[in-house]
Computed example of a mutant assay.
Amino acid sequence: MTKWLKLRQKDRILDLCCGTGRHSLALANAGYRVTGIDLSPVLLREARTNDPDGRVTWIECDMRALPDDTMFAERFDAVVNLFTSFGYFEEDSEQLKVLRQIRKALKPGGRFVIDVMNAGYTEDHLVPHSKRVERGAVISETRRIEKGFVVKKIVVQEPNGSPRRYSERVKLYAPEQLSTMLNEAGLVLDTIYGGYEGEIYDARQSCRMIMVGHR
């Protein structure tokens, strides 16, 4: 990915939807100056715990509305949005706000990576139900595609405890749709990869759709 982004040592990278920081910290380890943004204070708390030396700048905010200060306007050499962290919102207009924030954060000529599920592959290979055990808890997940969204219901059953229930939803996009939205946001799509090793993208066979481009 760093090759796709044409990064140099000490370049500034924004990890948009950084979660617990696994990608941010890997980039910091590689010598880049990294800012991680996420809406979840719980995930950011874990990210800070994983970063005792404070190598990454961690900020809590909505991906649709980055802080309006000089730290974000045309500040970054690259923006990464990884492992299906795009498509959370019901309306395309809200997803477009995210893309415009990416443009705002990038320096002129700065590059981006947006990594999402490939719609065709997901439709063909969706697993309706799965179950696993983690730290003694049984985690059951059901999945379906509804109105263009992958909807996932999660039940966590702790030993001797009441079940906890969660839901997730992410929109599936065809490459043409996302390309149009990128153009509308003022971003240029250069390449689509089908996997993390730079595989050629195939609409039905590729498990990922990784959009790489620039401002």
Rank of each mutant, 00 (worst) to 15 (best):
S167W: 03
M63Q: 07
L25P: 10
I114T: 01
H23Y: 11
L39Y: 10
E146W: 07
V79M: 10
A78T: 04
T2R: 06
S206I: 02
G198P: 09
G195E: 05
R75Y: 07
N81K: 00
R143Q: 15
I200R: 13
L126I: 15
I37N: 01
G120V: 05
H214M: 01
R208K: 11
S130I: 03
A28K: 01
E60Q: 15
C207E: 11
R135T: 06
E199A: 13
M211R: 00
L66T: 04
E46S: 06
L99W: 03
N29C: 03
E91K: 15
Q157C: 12
G198E: 01
L187R: 01
D62I: 02
Q101C: 09
V42W: 04
G186C: 09
D124P: 02
I13D: 02
F112V: 05
R103C: 06
S140C: 10
Q9G: 13
E197H: 12
N160F: 14
A119S: 15
K6R: 15
G136I: 04
E90K: 13
M209W: 06
V212A: 14
A26N: 01
D68I: 00
D69L: 08
N29A: 14
E91Q: 14
I192M: 09
L126Y: 12
G21N: 02
Q9C: 04
F83C: 03
P175H: 04
I154F: 07
C61E: 08
N118D: 09
V155P: 04
C207K: 05
C207R: 04
G110S: 08
A73S: 10
Q177K: 08
E199R: 06
K10C: 06
K97M: 15
L178S: 08
I210Y: 02
L16Y: 14
R144P: 10
L14N: 07
A26E: 11
L96A: 10
G213M: 05
A26L: 10
V150R: 00
D69E: 09
A30D: 14
D190T: 07
V138A: 11
N183V: 02
N81G: 01
H214I: 02
A65F: 13
M71I: 00
V150Y: 08
C207A: 02
S85W: 06
V42M: 11
D62A: 04
N81R: 00
V155K: 09
A105G: 08
E197R: 13
R8I: 00
Q205W: 00
R208Q: 03
G31P: 09
P108V: 00
E168N: 12
N118C: 09
S206T: 02
D53H: 12
I210A: 13
L126D: 09
C61F: 05
G195Y: 08
H129I: 03
E134D: 07
T122M: 11
Y32D: 03
